[in-house]
């Protein structure tokens, strides 16, 4: 076989395998359960080609660009030895990547509609826009704080479970006092904060820090930044609901 073709097959085999469960589920439910033909077959097939090629490129770029960059930044900060600079970087990375996140903008707008319809805030355009903007700032701020705490934990080598369990207990206690309308949004906001580009970068940063600093184990200390970034928004949004409703 021509080596180029062989390489191409290897290049798309992984993504094809990754996407095949989705194809199977969709086909089964469409043809067997709902018993309907596939609409617009041409668009579906083109779309699938795009998905497979896109995933293949993304994974290649991950290993060439995002992972080395995150690790390099971690190493550079560790050698520089300035705690303030590292903390400022962690906060900016968390805040900056979250504040413009499209998923968060969508959730904040829907949350403002609920609050307006439920009478928690004035049901006017201005009040709703204000509410949505404040909610976005709150979530972005909480992710910034999350990365600061998470990076500090890596430096100190604290075990993660006390912090996380403490956070969960905080969520449970705040849920008891938070207005009902904010709870679902708060729980979901933890999931929407971490985008596809942020996750590899932040993971590489954490693992890079834990590998560079003496006495830290990348497996025990390096992971966990994403966990903090998914937990603090819940806490902050619950408090936001108690203040603004």
């Amino acid at each position: 076989m021509h080596p180029g073709i062989r390489q191409l097959i290897l290049f798309i085999a992984g993504p094809l395998r990754d996407i095949s469960p989705v194809i199977l589920v969709v086909l089964f439910f469409q043809l067997v359960v709902l018993q309907q033909p596939l609409p617009n077959l041409e668009a579906v097939l083109t779309g699938l080609v795009f998905v497979v090629l896109g995933l293949a490129l993304f994974i290649r770029g991950l290993e060439m660009g995002l992972f080395p960059l995150g690790e390099m930044m971690a190493e550079a900060f560790a050698h520089k030895g300035s705690l303030t600079a590292l903390m400022a970087f962690a906060f900016c990375l968390g805040f900056g990547t979250t504040v413009a996140e499209p998923a968060l903008i969508a959730v904040a707008a829907e949350a403002a509609d609920i609050a307006g319809a439920g009478g928690a805030i004035l049901n006017t355009e201005v009040a709703r826009t204000d509410y949505a903007f404040n909610l976005r700032l709150t979530v972005a701020f909480s992710v910034g704080i999350a990365l600061v705490i998470g990076v500090f934990r890596i430096l100190k080598g604290w075990p993660i479970h006390y912090l996380i369990i403490g956070g969960y207990l905080g969520v449970v206690i705040l849920t008891l006092f938070a207005p009902a309308g904010i709870i679902g949004i708060a729980y979901d906001s933890g999931g929407v904060t971490t985008s596809t580009i942020t996750v590899p970068l932040v993971t590489a940063l954490g693992v890079g820090l834990a590998s560079t600093i003496r006495g830290r184990n990348p497996m025990v200390d390096g992971f966990g930044l994403i966990a903090f970034a998914s937990l603090t928004p819940i806490l902050f949004v619950l408090v936001f609901g108690m203040v603004f409703h």
Binding site: G47, L55, G65
Partner: peptide, 28 residues
């Protein structure tokens, strides 16, 4: 190399999202 990697990530993610919007999301 890192810059090329970034371009791959951007192009890959764009194709991936467009493909999802064309193929998967409407059906799902």
């Amino acid at each position: 190399k890192i810059a090329i990697g970034f371009v791959y990530v951007l192009a890959g993610l764009t194709l991936f999202l467009v493909g999802l919007q064309e193929a998967l999301f409407p059906l799902g």
